[in-house]
Structures are given as C-alpha cells and as structure tokens.
Design a protein around this nucleic acid. Structure first.
Lengths: 251, 251
DNA sequence: CGAGTACTTGACACGTTTCAACATCCGTGG
DNA sequence: CCACGGATGTTGAAACGTGTCAAGTACTCG
C-alpha cells in the first residue's frame, strides 16, 4: 500500500527468521502487507486506553511503553518496547484497550491494519503461531514485572529492569559488548519500578557506587554484569529468547 | 481417552459459547479431546518453573495460582485461576515454564495433551482465536497487577484484588448477589499483593471497619461494592468480560 | 543567553516490615 | 469424644525502606 512498508517488512521477516525459515509465499505475503509509517516525537501517545484500534503498530525505531493512570493521578509504566516489537498485537483479539501506549524516545512506528494481519494468520498457521508466541512472551514479561514490583526491594527492581533492557536490546543487535542506549529518564524508570523519582535517583547512585553500572546521559554501561544480575535477582529465562539468548550474558 | 473428559468438555463448550456459537463439528471435536482428570489437595504444585509440559490443564473446580520464588526465598503470587480457566495455555507455544502453578484450594484439574489442542486450533480458526484471546486476557490481568503492585497503597491493593476475584467468580456463576467463596489465606493474599501477612491482616481489618466487606472463614461478603471499588481504584474493563460483565457490579 | 527539563541533595514523615507473643481455628489420632 | 498440634489469624512495639517536600544544580535546546 505504501513504499514505507519496505523497512518494516525487512525488520519483521528478519525477526521471524530467528524462529523459523520463511517460505517464499510467506515472505511475499508479509512484503505485501499494507503499512503506514509515522515518525513521532518523544512523549507522544500512540494509542490510548479505551480506544478500539483497527490496526497494529510495529516499533521500527525508538522505545515505547505501555502505561496506566491511577485514580490518584499516578502513572504506572507496564512494559517497554524496542525496535522489532509489536506492542499491541493484543488488539487483534481484544476490542478495547485497557492501557495506553506512548513513545519514550523519538520513534518510527508502522501501522498495519488488522484485517490483512488476520488473513495472514489464517492463511499461514506458522505465522499465526509465532504472533501468538510473541504475545505470550509479552505476558511472560508482565509476570516477571509483577514479581519485580511485588517481591523485590527498590535496588533490585532497578537493577532487574536494567538487566532486562540490556538483554533485550542486545538480542536485537542494539547493544555493544557492555553498553547500550537507554533513553528513559529517571522519572520514567521510577514509574516503571513503582518507586519515587527521588528514590530512583538514589538507587542509581548506589548502583554506580557499587561499580555495577555507569549511566550518563542515556548511555548505560554495565561494568559488572554478574553483580548487576545478582542484585537484580535476574534470570533471563522469562524472556524466552531461545538457546543463545538464554544466557543473556554480554560478550 | 477417558470418561473423565465429560465434565471438562461441558465446561469448555459452555465457556466458549459465551463468546460464539459452536458448530456441531466444533462441539464434537472438543468432546473428542483426550483428557485426564486429577483431584489435588490444596498447596499442591501442578507444574513447576523450568518444566516443559506436553499438555495444558483446565481448572474444573477450586482455585489455583501462578507464583515465582525470589532469590531471597520470597514467594510472589502472579495470578489466581478459577474454574473454567486454562492457566497454562502459554505452554502451547512457549517450551519452558517461567513460573510455577499450584493449587490454593482442593482442585479438580483436567489435562489435555498439546498435540490434539494444536490440531484443534489449526482445524478451527475460530477456536484458535478464542484460545489466543483467553491468553491475551490473562496478559491484561498481569498488566493490571503490575499497576496494582507498583501504583497503589496496601489498602487499595487488597481491595482491588477482592474486586477482581468477586467479579470473575460472579461471571462464571460462582458468586451470590454480594458474596462468594474465597479460599485464599491472608498469607496468600499477602503474597499476591506484595504486602506482609501482618499488614494484610491490618488492611483487612480496616476494610471491615469501613463496612466495605466481611470476610470470615473463606466467605467474602461485599457490603459496599461502590466503596470497595472506590478504595481499590477498580475498573473491570481489563477483564474483557464483554457487555454485561463490563459493569462488574453485583445487583 | 534564557527557560524549561532533568538530575541531585537533605531532612523529615509515613507506610510497611519485622519480630515476638498470643489467640483461634481445625483436622487428626488416641 | 476429647486432646493435641500445627496452621491461621490477631495484636503491639520498634526499625527500616521509601515517599514527600523543598531547594538547588546541571543540562539542553532554541
């Protein structure tokens, strides 16, 4: 439908081929998906709680997050999404959105209408399985966040979140040996971990003092992976990345 | 495979028919699913983190929960499951379990091997959609729990959890006008809300003192639904129960 | 250069945890 | 049937983690 589908189709096929080998027909069907590309500034809503979207969005570049607003005005971030993710795959089968999706950094997103996606799933059961699987991995991440928020002290929560982001970014080739670009503000890290911004700041300083990380600007460098993993009680199994990703270890 | 499939197939078709009208072929295929029934005492593991199960389980009677154990020995409960639920639908597409499932009360569970389930999904796209949808509703509940644990004070967390359980039980016909059977101990409520058992006890007393609930033995009576919903910041949208369930209000 | 945003620091208040003791309930075996 | 023992629920007091408020510093971008 638009030439902008090119980069997105390439990204999608590449991600699919980490799981299976696409047939020519499958590859062609994906390339033929109608798509609309959009460049968004940071702090921009993509879809909102209560919406009934008729399309899914693929994050091509940048980082986005799901969030909910509480009755008292507080914002809870539910998950982060990185390039290659389809955050709102759920909207294929759940009519109304129960949370809102916004950009955390400047983002390029691509929208694909539901109907062709559903047809793709019906025609190619293997793709249907993979999409379903992706939504299940999202659920697994939510489970781990429940664990993180309910079962760990502040320092562990932040450490765990940093571990998760690092491993996920590394898995899609967006991390160097021991560092990656993390555009979240401390206030956003706070909303994701259920801590106050002030306390998040102190926890970060404590992690720096323990020589586990450096975090300047939006560059995270993990100087002691084993230590960070230990403090964060982090085990990457829940990310379901497969054999090599299972270790989740840099280098 | 066993006569024990009868009650489970009935329960499953009934739940499916709240969403769509089954064809005779679909109904027959479900009735033909092999099934193995099991009666378990309370506090019994059904599947464990790290397992690679070859079957899914349906809760026919009783309540079960997902949980994870933290590095420091703490247990975090991730969700509760009630009769009609298929808690580990995820295992259809994720090989290794990232958390453990145990009974909270005495339970009857039925196991269905993965292969016939996958065949069912491939042969009947509508059933595939519904199963996928159920796993998405589970994910939506996890999201709300992230909100609950990260964004609300203790009293709200407990109130919210009680609201959720009441509405879900009511939706499957397991609640009276304003009361239902909730077999969780205070210690389990604590592990689900990220509070200590002692504080959970105090919060419950506070809810009782505010005349919102009575909770004796395992009988929960909601004496002020609007008030409980208010305290718990509860909006049932995330349960995706559909039109009548949307209100989630007991008569 | 200025203004807004992000980050940092200190002091104090409050929610929640922890520990310890005790009360109550309930199934089990004598 | 009762007595017992363990799990569950309840209460008090003190310690601790984290939140809140307030002020100030360091960025960044136009």
């Amino acid at each position: 439908m638009s030439p902008s589908s090119q980069p997105f189709a390439h990204m999608l096929t590449r991600k699919l081929e980490t799981v299976l080998t696409l047939s020519d027909r499958e590859r062609a069907a994906i390339g033929a998906l109608p798509a609309q590309s959009l460049n968004l500034k940071r702090n921009h809503d993509i879809v909102r709680e209560g919406d009934r979207p008729g399309r899914c969005c693929v994050i091509v570049d940048g980082i986005a997050c799901w969030f909910k607003l509480g009755g008292t005005g507080s914002r809870q971030i539910l998950s982060f999404h990185i390039p290659g993710d389809i955050p709102d795959l759920q909207s294929l089968h759940l009519d109304v959105l129960d949370s809102s999706l916004m950009t955390v950094s400047p983002c390029q997103v691509v929208f694909i209408p539901h109907e062709p996606l559903r047809q793709l799933c019906n025609e190619f059961p293997r793709l249907n399985h993979v999409f379903w699987r992706w939504s299940l991995v999202d659920a697994a991440i939510f489970r781990e966040w429940v664990m993180n928020l309910g079962g760990r002290p502040g320092e562990s929560r932040i450490a765990h979140l940093l571990c998760e982001m690092f491993v996920r970014l590394q898995h899609v080739g967006l991390a160097e040996d021991d560092s990656c670009h993390i555009p979240m503000t401390q206030s956003e890290l706070a909303d994701a971990t259920g801590l106050s911004a002030v306390h998040t700041n102190r926890v970060l300083q404590s992690l720096r003092a323990a020589k586990l990380i450096t975090l300047a600007g939006s560059r995270l460098t993990v100087t002691d992976w084993a230590g960070l993993q230990e403090v964060g009680d982090f085990d990457p199994t829940y990310l379901h990345l497969g054999k090599n990703g299972t270790s989740g270890k840099p280098n």
